[in-house]
């Protein structure tokens, strides 16, 4: 079972390697990847340096080119694939059928993984991507229950990768336009959800307001933990009742599911967070390395160490974690 860790910069990448990641995933600057944030991701030279460092340590580099190409800028997506391959990427993480077809035809020898942004949640979709584009691994959206993941694992012939820890996307990835509805920009059309340039914080009489493109997402009284205004995590009103109508600010943490995931032959567990600091990536990677090592050492006696949970909770949104859709109670 592979531990796949995020890196938005070379320092984060080095930290993840140091703490025991088996593989690292990165994106290129610009809107060809789904974490298109200012100052984040690697340029061409950075990507080459990353590949050299990762390979020197005997690990693998995945490059996410997982947004959907624009009609007038197809060359940018082609170029991203070309550069990733040239730099020495072991794996391309792709979502767009056009980009998949290009990579499969041009670089058949480079492994292609289906990004979570392609929203493949069922055996028929997975089989399609395998047959048509030679996809060898599929990253599952964070909408499936453990039972459903298990059923898929016993049905499909590709490898499966699941999200293990990090921000919890509550909608099927690649199928959520809430962000563009409020701002014009979405993960699909711009590579980011609730982009930072639309975020405004205002303090009014001791109450902190968070806004996205002018729309109020939440209000925080003094002392309350004020989260980033991801639009699905605000407090809204339904029929006069105010609550987190879609989801609380919370993070996904599946440490407790690790034995089941392993038992079902899940090939890789993925840590979300290319936008996170090197320190964050290092701490999370260390916990997961320990957990996986303990599991592989003696699957029968695996238990979640309390320190792991508290470390991860401290790094989580709102300091709380959930196993999300993997358990039916969340739904």
């Amino acid at each position: 079972m592979e531990l796949l860790c995020p890196a938005g910069s070379l320092p984060a990448l080095k930290m993840a390697l140091k703490e025991g990641a088996d593989a690292i995933y990165v994106g290129l600057r610009g809107d060809t990847n789904a974490r298109h944030f200012a100052g984040l991701n690697l340029d061409t030279q950075g990507l080459r340096d990353a590949a050299r460092e990762v390979h020197r340590q005997g690990r693998r580099l995945h490059v996410a080119i997982n947004t959907f190409a624009h009609p007038t800028d197809w060359e940018s997506w082609q170029l991203a694939v070309d550069e990733a391959v040239k730099a020495g990427a072991d794996v391309l993480i792709l979502a767009d059928m056009a980009v998949l077809a290009y990579a499969a035809e041009r670089y058949p020898e480079v492994e292609r993984h289906l990004s979570v942004q392609a929203s493949a949640t069922n055996a028929a979709a997975i089989e399609f991507y395998r047959q048509v584009y030679g996809v060898t691994r599929v990253v599952l959206p964070r909408v499936l229950s453990m039972q459903q993941v298990s059923a898929l694992a016993h049905t499909v012939s590709t490898e499966l990768e699941v999200f293990a820890f990090g921000s919890l996307c509550i909608m099927a990835e690649g199928r959520c336009y809430l962000s563009s509805y409020m701002t014009g920009e979405s993960p699909n059309n711009s590579g980011a959800c609730s982009p930072a340039k639309f975020v405004r914080w205002e303090e009014k009489r001791g109450v902190l307001e968070s806004r996205l493109n002018g729309y109020l997402i939440d209000r925080f009284a003094g002392g309350e933990n004020a989260g980033y205004p991801t639009l699905c995590k605000g407090r809204f009103e339904v029929d006069g009742e105010r609550y987190h109508a879609l989801e609380e600010p919370t993070s996904l943490n599946t440490l407790s599911l690790l034995p089941e995931l392993y038992g079902d032959g899940i090939k890789a567990v993925k840590i979300e967070g290319r936008q996170r600091s090197p320190a964050y990536v290092g701490q999370v990677t260390r916990v997961w390395r320990q957990a996986i090592d303990r599991l592989l050492n003696d699957p029968e006696r695996y238990r979640v160490n309390r320190d792991w949970d508290s470390t991860l909770a401290g790094l989580s949104e709102g300091h709380q974690t959930t196993i999300g859709a993997y358990h039916r109670s969340w739904r």
Binding site: V143, A172, R175, C176, Y177, A245, G324, S329, W330, R331
Partner: peptide, 16 residues
């Protein structure tokens, strides 16, 4: 605009 594993209508009535 979006699809989820979670049913938001059930959630709005405090039902699993």
């Amino acid at each position: 605009l979006a699809w989820s594993a979670r049913c938001f209508t059930a959630r709005s009535e405090n039902r699993p």
